[in-house]
Simulated assay, not measured.
Amino acid sequence: MDKTLIKGLKVLEVVTGSTERIRTIEELAEKVGLTRSNTHRTLQTLIHTGFVARDDQDNYIGGIRLFELAANQLAQLDLRRIASGAMHVLAESTGETIHLSVLDGFDVVYVDKIDSPQPIRAYSMIGGRAPAYAVATGKAILAYQTDSFLESHEAQLQKYTNATLADLDTLRPALARTVKQGYALNRGEWREGVGGIAVPIFNGLGQIMGAVGISAPLDRLTPARIRQLVPEVIQCASAISQQLGYTAKAVKPEA
């Protein structure tokens, strides 16, 4: 059992859960049952990481990092429910398979899906995984990750088809285009002959929560059809993001 972690959680619990404001380390130490030096050391770590702050009256309070984590978790828990209506609108207007994905490690997980009524359609299942760099929803999310995150997963890059972007020299420019144009494309990079269009979803803090996208055989995803579908996918993602509190304008596709 990690005693340092337990101390940190105790301090955090008292700071955020106490009905009385705490202004001194001595008060806090008494409430958590730790020595002054232990309390001070733990408190400084929590302040440095943004989990504890001081208000305008010098009371110790929960920091912005706590709010960010809570908002992020609540949005994840609600994402499938919130996205459902917009996904059904997109499914009806396009007649294609719709995926709602979140990032887990260097994979995307399909947390929801609406199947296309077409006889030939993209195969996947709710709870299924795909390499994020090889599918549209994954690329839409990866485009907003740090370069250090990409580098930390570089060893996982591998070819699935001839079209897979299996090295950072080719993946980085594709992700930069995704940010610039507001959507990601998959041109048979995970499964031969299957492509996709996807747009990221953001919460009220501007954090990326996942992505929504269309998957279809490349025979149907012609350049002309992609131009037709991109605004609809953007509109779907924008509707979901707005329900999560995101207030920025939806990104419009470039001509």
Rank of each mutant, 00 (worst) to 15 (best):
Y183I: 12
A184W: 14
A184F: 09
R187G: 10
G188I: 12
G188P: 13
E189L: 07
E189D: 09
W190F: 11
W190G: 02
E192N: 14
E192F: 14
G193M: 13
V194P: 01
G195F: 07
G195Q: 09
G196D: 05
G196E: 06
I197A: 09
A198C: 09
A198S: 15
A198E: 12
I201C: 11
I201L: 11
F202R: 11
F202S: 01
N203F: 03
N203Q: 06
N203P: 04
G204Y: 11
G204C: 14
L205E: 15
Q207K: 13
I208V: 15
I208F: 01
I208N: 14
M209R: 14
M209E: 14
G210D: 06
G210E: 11
A211L: 05
A211Y: 01
V212E: 02
G213E: 09
I214Y: 03
S215C: 06
P217M: 09
P217Y: 11
R220D: 11
R220M: 10
R220P: 01
R220T: 03
R220K: 14
L221T: 05
L221R: 08
T222P: 05
P223A: 06
A224R: 14
A224H: 06
R225I: 08
I226T: 10
I226E: 15
R227S: 09
Q228F: 07
Q228W: 11
L229K: 04
L229H: 05
V230H: 03
E232L: 13
E232W: 05
I234G: 03
Q235E: 10
C236E: 02
A237H: 02
S241N: 01
S241K: 01
S241Y: 02
S241F: 01
Q242W: 02
Q242N: 07
Q242L: 00
